[in-house]
Structures are given as structure tokens and as C-alpha cells.
Amino acid sequence: MEIKSWLEDDTLTVCITGEIDHHSAAGWRTSIDREAVCAHPAVLVMDFSGVTFMDSSGIGLVMGRYRLVRSWEGELLLTGLSDRLRKMMTLAGLDRLPVWGKKGEKKYETC
């Protein structure tokens, strides 16, 4: 699965687009991990602004990437979350993790 991503100042931004379900999550996981493992960024930004649907597979995708970047003491940030996606993430208690990027913040330019 092709993924739009860029690395700047030790921050890797990956843009997820379309639908995240169990079927598509495996492809996103492989693509994000390939980029992240190469770059070992201090900050991994997952940009959800292009996501049109997400079920709990999206939560699993975030939790797995959180574990991955923590393995080299990196940080994970989520940006571009609609209210709907935020509601889904909150179900998992992800609002208790320091993962919320501020939308529009210059440092974390959205896709």
C-alpha cells in the first residue's frame, strides 16, 4: 500500500486516507512500519485528516504504532482527527496518552 509520508527535523509524518477497517489495517501497518523503522524518528505523526471511516481496527493500528515508537523512546502524535474519530479513540482511552497533536500547528503540518 502506497503511503504519503515525509521526514523533517526527526519528525516522520504519515498520511492515512480512506477507510480503516480490519481489511485495510494490515496494509497501513506494513506501510507505516516500513517508513518508521527506516527513519527511527523522534516523533511519529499519524495524520487522519483523509480518513473517511474507522472502526476499532484504527485503534489497534494506533496502539501498535505507539508501542513501536516507544521501543526507541520516540513519541507518537495523532492529527487531523474529526469529532467522530476522536470519539472512537476516546473509547480506547487514547485521550489519556499524550498523543493528541494540535491541528493546524505549524510543526505538524497536515496532509
Partner: peptide, 14 residues
């Protein structure tokens, strides 16, 4: 497995 959140029924109920 590790990339499943275990929240399927929670989503249905919510």
C-alpha cells in the same frame, strides 16, 4: 493478536 484492540463489542455497545 497485538494489533487488535479488543474493543469490538465496546464499539457495538457504544
Amino acid at each position: 493478536g497485538e494489533d487488535r484492540a479488543g474493543l469490538g463489542f465496546s464499539v457495538m455497545e457504544s
